[in-house]
Amino acid sequence: MTGSDDTRRPRPDGGPSPLDEAAFEGHSIESLSDYLDRDRQPADPTIESSPAAQHALAALARLRAVAPRVLASEADSYEFPHDHWITRILDQISVQVRAGRDIPVAHDVPTAVLSITEGAVRGVVRDVGDGFAGMLVERVRLDGDIESPGARAVVTVDIVTFAGTDVAAVGEEFGRAVRSALAKHTELSVTDVVVRVRDTGLTDEEVRDR
């Protein structure tokens, strides 16, 4: 990525810069800079026909192209003063904002208000996926009136598979394992487990488990 730029050295005198000229057919650096930012629209014939102006615009465009690299290389060499900048962040995020809806758990005591959160269920599905080599759960969606006791639900799981994974086989096995885990940890009536696969580099396919 850094390529041949790294082996060159600056010319000692700096050399002429395309932006040194004070005026390009009556245009200032400011107006050329502005013209670049407007993506050269509407086209200005006096600018487009001036070699000096074109030279300057080319330089500005080169600078623009290089900008991401400058920041990326600064990021590469950035050193945090201490290590607990990460824990400071993690300590302040609340997992409970991902709790989602409450899925009821039945009890024969009328004063009991028991539930498992949607967030907990997503975690269950992710954990199931972690047990399968060659794939990773990305997102989990529960569709249905899951806040009602014994509600019917459709579970849609987006997964990513890696090179060499037998997508169809994994999709099916994983879907069965999800159904089993949900039967264990929830009182939902799961009608469908839909596994959608993002195969890295290939097209998505749907594996429906009935």
Binding site: R8, R11, G15, S17, S28, S33, D37, A59, L60
Partner: peptide, 20 residues
């Protein structure tokens, strides 16, 4: 802003061109 941007670009282009 327009002026500041132009000036910053002038300075940076000078630096960049010195490496070509």
């Amino acid at each position: 802003v327009r002026g500041l941007l132009a000036r910053s670009r002038k300075a940076l282009v000078r630096e960049m061109e010195a490496w070509r």
